[in-house]
């Protein structure tokens, strides 16, 4: 393999941090969900890199599961978001901060 483990890991770290920034700073529920998906993909990159480093298939199996779980996560999240949007007409989480 041509690219050292550390470089791929750094890429994965950057992707996760970008996703984290997106998930914590955006004020739109869809973008927050998108940010978390980016974080999951960053973790998947790290698993691929680790699988190559140790020459094992476990890391790649992990990635297949991550893809499936990410799909479940998005469908659940979007269902909640659509339901909430029907009731309140807003996608901004700050509009819901009325719980005392």
């Amino acid at each position: 393999m041509g690219i050292p483990f550390g470089y791929v890991l750094a890429l994965a770290g950057i992707v996760v941090v970008l996703g984290m920034i997106c998930a914590t700073t955006r004020r739109n529920l869809i973008m927050i969900l998108l940010g978390v998906e980016v974080m999951l993909n960053g973790a998947a990159i790290a698993f691929i890199a680790a699988a190559l480093r140790w020459q094992q298939l476990e890391g790649q199996a992990f990635v297949l599961f991550i893809i499936a779980i990410a799909a479940a996560e998005v469908s659940l999240g979007l269902a909640l978001i659509v339901y909430l949007y029907h009731r309140t007409g807003s996608l901004n989480p700050e509009d819901y901060q009325v719980l005392k």
């Binding site: 890991l9 994965a12 978390v36 790290a46 992990f62």
Partner: peptide, 13 residues
């Protein structure tokens, strides 16, 4: 859970 998954990846790596 995404943070945890990245942690698992680092542990495995």
């Amino acid at each position: 859970s995404a943070v945890m998954l990245f942690g698992l990846a680092l542990l495995y790596g």
